[in-house]
């Protein structure tokens, strides 16, 4: 807990940034049917369990065309 108290000015924005990325990616996965590859289950797992990299990978590789 000590480290939390000392470094909260770092950890808070970090966690926020991660959450923003995670939530936008998750919403996108859930709202869309088409992915460039992979299934909805795969992308949910990737987005939720791989911090930062998961959502980035989804937006770069997995996101299908809108529509």
């Amino acid at each position: 807990m000590e480290i939390l108290q000392e470094y909260w000015p770092f950890l808070l924005p970090l966690i926020l940034a991660q959450l923003v990325l995670l939530i936008t990616a998750l919403m996108h996965v859930l709202k869309h049917q088409n992915y460039r590859f992979g299934s909805r289950t795969l992308w949910i797992i990737v987005v939720v369990f791989f911090q930062i990299l998961g959502p980035v990978a989804y937006f770069v590789f997995g996101r299908g065309e809108d529509g």
Binding site: V20, I52, V56
Partner: peptide, 10 residues
């Protein structure tokens, strides 16, 4: 297309 978001957050 979330490019701006990805770049900014990273």
């Amino acid at each position: 297309t979330y490019k701006l978001l990805v770049m900014t957050v990273v």
